[in-house]
Write a protein that binds this DNA or RNA. Sequence first.
DNA 1: TCTAACATGTTAGTGGCTAACTCGAAGGGA
DNA 2: TCCCTTCGAGTTAGCCACTAACATGTTAGA
Lengths: 220, 220
Amino acid sequence: MNPQNEPPVSGTDTSRAAGTDWRRAKRERTRRLLQQNAMRLFLEKGFDATTVEEIAAASGVSHMTFFRYFPTKEDAALEDDYDPMIADLIAERPAEEPAIDKIRHALTHGLNQLYDSERDVLLARMRLVYRTPALRAGTGQRRDADQRLLIAALAPTAGGSRGELHLRVVVAAALAAVTEAIRYWAESNGADDLRHLIDEAFDALRAELTYDEPADRPSD
Amino acid sequence: MNPQNEPPVSGTDTSRAAGTDWRRAKRERTRRLLQQNAMRLFLEKGFDATTVEEIAAASGVSHMTFFRYFPTKEDAALEDDYDPMIADLIAERPAEEPAIDKIRHALTHGLNQLYDSERDVLLARMRLVYRTPALRAGTGQRRDADQRLLIAALAPTAGGSRGELHLRVVVAAALAAVTEAIRYWAESNGADDLRHLIDEAFDALRAELTYDEPADRPSD
DNA sequence: TCTAACATGTTAGTGGCTAACTCGAAGGGA
DNA sequence: TCCCTTCGAGTTAGCCACTAACATGTTAGA
């Protein structure tokens, strides 16, 4: 019936996993299929106008199967797999580097590796997110998860001396800078290079806080 | 039937609004009633376990009326009226003060005026928010609104010289600091003074970014 | 071949939220 | 005083995200 469901009759072709976990391979295939169809429909008709039933039907499964792969409809538009990469990149930074620079350089580094291949799809997704209120709300939850991830990655080297609140604030501010850069990028339809905007965002933060106040800011 | 629906028969008692807008007074009364019942039920039974029907019934109206006052169930738990006050306080700061200090001092100032009277209700609300995923998501939208408000309040004095992105980043970072302070406060069940935590959060941000150490920015 | 594990489907809900329509009361002018 | 507009609120019906309970077929391993 469904041509992809056959067990590994010949076994040796593209399956990088032997024996027991061709199931996992199929799961991943189904997951990708659902996500691709979801994104395609979201971009075609808008997020709200697309029902889970449609996504499931386009993927040849029932809507229950969709929810077994994605806890909410939002997740099908928001999930990505960058997180472990970022954690690794943070661990590679020199231990004595300030936390905010660790984050900055790790992100810049990771983005450099992805930019050529994923710029367009990332831009399309972000434009969708920023034009869809329901997805904007979802990004909040993801930011919480990212924050926890970064805190966990930074805690071993930066944790002791400064307090918990300190670390949380720094991570949250760094994420805020990145988020604003991405949003700016999406709103200007990718006109600038995202990496440059992220640099600008972090520079802005530093400039604002190292500005030693007195004087007068000459108004334009 | 409903004792509050009578027209102003005697007119002169508590109604501070004359003539045509006793309707507005009634609207506000209904709104407050709904919000109070909502908060009470949320705290008693949890946000998810409380249905809009229950809130409406407890307030003596139909669920449609609830949605005429609050666009979503989340809004009944999240709405407050601090925003205009913050905008005013920002406008009162000296024009040459850096944006982030404007925000910091305006917030500290405003909080000082509310702290004695509203600390407990604010704490209860925040504890509810941080234990309810659906409400956490809602805070993202509110933060967007707050960010826009602050940008609008700051743009006249800080707008021209630096870029739009700069201002957005600074405001987002400041809101991140405040948010982390509030969350920390709620998680520790109000053990510390919130105003002190907010000061600590802003200090952490400044300390992290004024930490000089040029060193090497490793390229690759 | 028997059985446990597992992916998927079916069905029947709950509940947030919306739309179309109606009702009734307030208010203003004739 | 009567009419007529306005507006808050109710009723009803429905859509859709999401869940729970149960059934079914298929693979994995003994």
